[in-house]
Design a protein around this nucleic acid. Sequence first.
DNA 1: TTGTAAGCGTTATCAC
DNA 2: GTGATAACGCTTACAA
Lengths: 364, 364
Amino acid sequence: MCVIVTTFSRIGTSPAPGSRRITITDVARTAGVSIAVVSYALNGRPGVSDRTRRHVLRTAADLGWRPSAAARSLRSVPRSVSVQAVGVAAAARTTAVALGLRAALDDAEATPATDVVVDVAPDHDVGARDLEHAWTERRHGAFVVTGLHRDDPRTRLVADHGVPLVPLVPQQRGGMLGTAPGSVPGLVWFSGDAEERAARYLRELGHRRVALLVQDGHDDPSRLLLDALAGAGDGAHVVTEEIVYRTEEDAAARAARLLATANRPTAVVADGDVALLAVLEAARQRGLEVPWDLSVLALEDSPACRLVHPPATAVARSWAELGAAAAVLVRPLLGGQPPRDDDDDAPAAAARLVIRGSTAPVPA
Amino acid sequence: MCVIVTTFSRIGTSPAPGSRRITITDVARTAGVSIAVVSYALNGRPGVSDRTRRHVLRTAADLGWRPSAAARSLRSVPRSVSVQAVGVAAAARTTAVALGLRAALDDAEATPATDVVVDVAPDHDVGARDLEHAWTERRHGAFVVTGLHRDDPRTRLVADHGVPLVPLVPQQRGGMLGTAPGSVPGLVWFSGDAEERAARYLRELGHRRVALLVQDGHDDPSRLLLDALAGAGDGAHVVTEEIVYRTEEDAAARAARLLATANRPTAVVADGDVALLAVLEAARQRGLEVPWDLSVLALEDSPACRLVHPPATAVARSWAELGAAAAVLVRPLLGGQPPRDDDDDAPAAAARLVIRGSTAPVPA
DNA sequence: TTGTAAGCGTTATCAC
DNA sequence: GTGATAACGCTTACAA
């Protein structure tokens, strides 16, 4: 990034702590050119002879020059991206997005390196405030958000403050967000119809009473699933029930209560590891054997899905892949260009249904 | 933060996207004072009359002024902290640290708000490079790291580049890091002797063959536990075995193999959710009943520990609390002061052993 | 108590 | 192709 540092001249040359920064002025003086030339050379801009450019690059590397993020941001769009995580529950997902994004951005031969950071907010409202502040303070050049839901306070930011938002939505296009009034430009979404396939799969297995166990305040690919379950096809009516939990204790309690009801669901959809484990434990307590007495389907694949018994059928979304796809939208924003408006070729990552052992036909 | 914005005058006044930033110059002009006065007033510095200060604050709020992070960082230490997460596995923990830290930093009446971000690196080496770059580019004022292990490349950064590091170590003081050659100043650690208590507990239950299932490349509170298990007390010798896994598949395979051995351990210590679930499933497969046939102890409490059956005995560390404790060391760094050297009153958070149903005496 | 002005390290616009 | 030089928004001596 920035400069391919031929580091041999710096071996053991630990810059005395507290010593003055090395600036392009130093590089210019050492190289015997003006700072303008150094700037051009360092940024790979035309207008410098190749000889000079090489010389400058060499000098900068020898001196151990590194750009000052602050000075740079003072004039142009900051070369950093913030990915927002709302709540600890979203940590793993957001981390994956950040890793995918940084890998994709690094790929580019683009000289100036970009920094990808995660902003972690306790809830959606604080998250919205975070974004507004970070943007008005010009801390980052682009803001990636996940877990947008209908009426998410963060949606308004793009209209109200012009925040360069890149929303990642866990659903295929045409979902609620694409058509909502506060529609946001520059969406990135998952391709494929994993939720619909999951719904069809459950229907085909004969399930007619399905419950969803979802965490409070979370985005709802669950809604897509509900719609798909309800939206007939073969005419058979599916009774659905959405159960919202807050803590894992709560999840356990609700799962237990759910399975204790007279006509309990024949299938339960869990929105994450917590819900999954809660359902499995509730089933065990009541002596229900998964999948024969109860089918369980997870809406987010994870190591836990693969480790529990039986391994859980799950919708697998590669958040890292989605983060990488987001790079296409992030890059122009960092270049100071306006967000793309043509949804048509919005980048996407594939979501798919992974069938494992936790789902089976309804017992006869 | 910064200013208590009496927002009534901004209702509906969405600053036209693309409009020029509001700077202290604007505030100064509107308020009819010089920019120096505005700066002093805004930063709560002495040298401004109360009347003027209120007037300036009021004007800034009315105008919707927000500081420019870049311009500020250009002269002083950036008012932002980076918390580094190495790998997705550390995501939840790091997120908790960040939340705790930001809560603690917000608490302070300190006028200038601080931004806490998470830097997520795929591995320790990239993490070290990240830190070096972020520091030489002066992106943040302080860097919090967790999961330091012996010979961690990041340890050298403080000596080599003067990086203002605040390491969080998951052990009580006097552990390996405190005495290692590359000793780092300004540690924050957990108080209490949870690992030793865990070891003592297992010994008291009669366990003499204990295995540890730990992820590759992770920090080792496990080592503390091993030492404590080995370090006698009652003379009885405890045979320990450390098993390192990489992926969750690997964990499952190794757990299965471990329990299939002739004289399998009577207790297994898992370093996280993945290891815990792997062991539980391996036990189930072999028809071993936890805790009667096998005791399981987790080295990191989590929702999963509370949801599995039986609920897992675990060492509970409040990473959020530790993050909050770190604020004490972070604050002076953001003020441009040198790191504290007196380990003596290093802040700490409590780690404790939570005994649940997954551990029991060795069968007679 | 307030104002003026010199930086901070870049980028960008000019002349040369 | 290259070199001065003016921004960028803020902090901080120092002068008034």
